[in-house]
Design a protein around this nucleic acid. Structure first.
Lengths: 123, 123
DNA sequence: CAGGATCCATATGGATACTG
DNA sequence: CAGTATCCATATGGATCCTG
């Protein structure tokens, strides 16, 4: 039985999987999740450097969204300068398991399978 | 081992899972997949009626995209009037299995679990 | 360091009208 | 019937500048 329920009233209305998908949809989000997942918890600046090309605006938006969904956590230490660390929550871990399946599927479909190679020299 | 590989050169460059996600991202796409998956192959007009509110433009775009990815097929019969039927391919089936997991996760997270109820009266 | 505020370019969806 | 073509409103990302 499929669990992709149709919208109650408004076709685009709040539907669990739509909510989840819209969180994952935007540019950078998957890459951000991948970084958090494989490289572990990191500070804002580190994330920005690893995700080369992302703007602080979008990085902040994505992190806030992931935090709001309980996928990532935010650890704020009000030192000077402040130290803010982000990482995946248990939910984030659950999600990554499924995303890995999706990635695995995508790799099979599209041929490229860097699964056991990690990142390239260019990364 | 996670399979969400980082982009080779351009951070937003072609990456299997990004490609796949961008296909699923837009409005209506998941709902369209859900309809095709649960209600079976259907003609263009039927789809439009079931997905209440979608424009022909977007419906066409989505179907073309799914077709291009091998997720859906298009069966065109040049009768008058023409009869075009869309349905999920084997790939589409594979994809739905994973999306179901995602939906199941989303339902657990967000509480709503219409999994054994199917659609509502409004659907 | 970790963002918030602002301005702008662009992509994309919605609505409508038209056609083989 | 199954689209295509067009115009428009809006959302969203990118770049830049500023600050506790």
């Amino acid at each position: 039985m499929h669990e992709l329920s149709p919208p109650p009233d408004d076709p685009k209305a709040v539907c669990p999987i739509n909510t989840l998908m819209s969180v994952l949809s935007g540019p950078w989000t998957l890459y951000l999740l991948w970084v958090l997942s494989t490289k572990g918890p990191q500070r804002f600046g580190e994330l920005r450097r690893q995700i080369n090309g992302i703007s602080t605006k979008v990085l902040t938006e994505r992190l806030r969204m992931l935090e709001a969904e309980g996928i990532a956590y935010r650890d704020y230490k009000p030192t000077i300068p402040p130290e803010v660390t982000y990482g995946l929550t248990a939910r984030g871990g659950e999600l990554m398991e499924i995303l890995d399946q999706l990635a695995s599927l995508a790799n099979r479909w599209y041929g490229e399978a860097p699964s056991n190679e990690g990142d390239r020299q260019r990364g």
